[in-house]
């Protein structure tokens, strides 16, 4: 009797609680912002900048299980940022983010900035502040060599396209190929493993990330060119103009000194 009654109560109370929580949540959300201190000064006080990067994206941010180091284009850019802001490229600490976890981690204060193949989009601008574009990517398709899929037009009914949860490409592909079935995964590791296991016919995301997969497994290739523009930006918590300025300044100097091209050529083969 006790158990059954309390279980019934559980349901009712749960509903009530969820509404209450959601209600105060909404109130609080509206009142945040503006209270944060100058993030740039905080970073300088700490003497290090904590940057969220991918650990599963070859060429951009990949944790190498052999060396234990994270490496890639985003990593080198981050090091240059640390050098420009703190005077030492070693004064950077990396934390792993995924497409899903990066915005929560930034807002939690886990990380100071996101340098993680992140497309600047209007939706995201509501949640974070972006630097200038530091890399121009475009969405494309990855298929096994010899696949009948040659481009977007071949994504017909029944074609399984794999994407990553929380990425812009997962949203875009539904518009570009409304007939196809889209399956979404937690991260690129799982998505690419699923493609290799034959769980899908194509994998879609930014060409730059796909090149990394080809680099890892040459049995796969990009097809159909790019069908979107994905300008990558460095994201910081909303309302940190000083930090955005410092990052933009550093990016500009990197480009002027030729350091940017050096890093880009090191990781990204011109196509």
């Amino acid at each position: 009797m006790f158990k059954s009654k309390s279980s019934k109560l559980a349901l009712i109370l749960f509903l009530a609680m969820s509404m209450l929580l959601a209600a105060c949540g909404k109130g609080e959300k509206a009142s945040t912002g503006g209270s944060s201190k100058n993030a740039l000064e905080q970073i300088k006080d700490k003497g290090k900048i904590v940057i969220g990067v991918k650990y599963d994206t070859r060429l951009f941010g990949l944790k190498n299980p052999t060396s234990g180091e994270v490496e890639g284009f985003d990593i080198d850019i981050s090091k240059e940022l640390a050098k420009a802001i703190l005077g030492d490229e070693k004064k950077v600490e990396f934390k792993e983010v995924t497409s899903k976890t990066r915005i929560p981690m930034l807002n939690n204060g886990d990380i100071d900035a996101i340098v993680a193949t992140m497309t600047i989009s209007e939706e995201r601008k509501k949640e974070v502040d972006f630097s200038d574009v530091y890399f121009m990517a475009g969405q494309s398709l990855l298929v096994k060599k010899g696949s009948p899929i040659k481009g977007l037009k071949d994504l017909k009914k029944g074609t399984k396209v794999l994407a990553v949860k929380g990425s812009t490409s997962a949203i875009n592909i539904r518009e570009k190929a409304p007939e196809a079935t889209v399956l979404e995964y937690e991260n690129y590791t799982e998505a690419f493993t699923a493609l290799k296991s034959g769980q899908g016919d194509a994998l879609t995301t930014d060409d730059a990330i796909l090149y990394g997969m080809v680099d890892q497994d040459p049995k796969y290739q990009l097809v159909g060119g790019t069908f979107t523009e994905e300008p990558y930006g460095i994201a910081v918590k909303k309302g940190n103009k000083e930090l955005v300025d410092a990052i933009n300044d550093a990016l500009k100097k990197m480009k002027e000194s030729g350091k940017y091209d050096e890093i880009k050529n090191k990781w990204i083969k011109t196509n």
Partner: peptide
């Protein structure tokens, strides 16, 4: 998960 990543609402 899909709904949350497309609407940007989690709670």
């Amino acid at each position: 998960d899909i709904v949350s990543s497309h609407t940007f609402v989690t709670f």
